[in-house]
């Protein structure tokens, strides 16, 4: 009989991702309702040090596989490790953050156990003893509620910033498990870090984004200045990416990243349906555009019809004062 709500505690270079804490916080509620235990899964090298950070968010147990072979994420290495645990302890639910790693790993594990996986969810609730997930599909233009009623574990990846991370420290039982060696067919030849002080786009609480109205790559400096004041990430619309002003990794929208920040500031973005699809779940949207007819104003909580080259620098200065006060 499968048992336990499991959360994959994703870590990278000794840091557990915030989304994992968010899942543990919400997972606690679900586990209590279902009368199951909440467990975290921690995989990597020297990750035993991280159990304390993880236990701050209330798991009953933490399964740890600490092995040199797992120093960096590889699809096979982590799939093998997590699968060993799943096979041994048979959880009923296995949750991941919807991150690059979460997506990659969850698909392999799901197929290994021939089970269902619901990706990029923005909600979960217990309905008649069954865990039901909410997923935006068609880039947020529709929403489906779905469950995995029979196959176990029921799996899902959850979009960062969906749930609040609430500390709930508990003495978790740490269970160390050996890594049962298996082939790792992906050999990492190089890891290239982009040096950025700014948060990752998909995890950022605040995003400052620019579109065609930015007129050129050099003007993104204006947005970076604003982002730095707010500790925000910088994003872009497809028009700005296609024009070659910024790299695709900045793109928000249907063919880019889907984001759910607390505050999204759209500068010179007209609000094409594909862009709205990627950011309309933001809690507060600000639009700055000189075209009063622009679609973006239809979804914006606050709008300024005006020249962003005038507005943004002043806004940056004003926010600097407010943030300092």
């Amino acid at each position: 009989m499968a048992k336990g709500i499991w959360v994959f505690a994703e870590q990278r270079e000794g840091q557990v991702k915030k989304v994992s804490f968010e899942l543990l916080s919400e997972g606690r509620k679900v586990a209590d309702q279902l009368g199951e235990e909440l467990c975290a899964v921690l995989v990597g090298k020297n990750v035993s040090d991280l159990t304390e950070a993880v236990s701050a968010y209330g798991p009953d147990k933490i399964y740890v596989i600490d092995n040199d072979a797992l120093e960096n994420y590889t699809t096979d290495g982590y799939t093998n490790a997590v699968s060993d645990l799943v096979k041994k302890y048979e959880p009923s639910v296995l949750l991941f953050g919807c991150t690059v790693t979460g997506r990659d790993l969850s698909a392999q594990v799901a197929q290994r156990f021939q089970t269902g996986l619901m990706t990029d969810c923005t909600g979960m609730e217990v309905v008649d003893g069954q865990l039901v997930f909410t997923r935006p599909i068609y880039a947020g233009k529709a929403i489906v509620k779905a469950s995995c009623p029979e196959a176990r574990p029921a799996m899902a990846t959850i979009r960062p910033n969906t749930f609040a991370a609430v500390e709930n420290a508990k003495q978790a039982e740490v269970i160390n498990v050996e890594y049962g060696a298996g082939d790792i067919r992906q050999v990492i030849k190089d890891i290239i870090r982009q040096v950025s002080e700014r948060p990752e786009l998909t995890e950022a609480n605040i995003i400052v984004s620019g579109g065609r109205g930015m007129k050129g790559p050099e003007n993104f400096k204006l947005l970076e200045d604003l982002a730095d004041v707010l500790g925000a990430a910088v994003g872009a619309s497809r028009a700005a990416v296609d024009a070659g002003w910024v790299s695709h990794s900045f793109q928000v929208g249907q063919t880019g990243k889907t984001v759910s920040p607390v505050l999204y500031i759209a500068c010179g973005i007209s609000g094409a349906i594909q862009h709205l699809a990627g950011m309309s779940s933001a809690k507060c949207i600000v639009a700055i555009n000189k075209d009063e007819e622009a679609n973006i104003f239809k979804v914006a909580d606050y709008g300024i019809v005006g020249d962003l080259f005038e507005v943004v620098p002043i806004l940056t200065e004003e926010l600097k004062k407010i943030m300092a006060s």
Binding site: R12, N72, Y73, T74, T99, V100, T101, Q186, V187, I188, K189, D190, I191, I192, R193, Q194, S196, E200, T202, E203
Partner: peptide, 8 residues
């Protein structure tokens, strides 16, 4: 990958 890239 988040914050960069990897060569595999």
């Amino acid at each position: 990958v988040e914050g960069g890239s990897e060569v595999i």
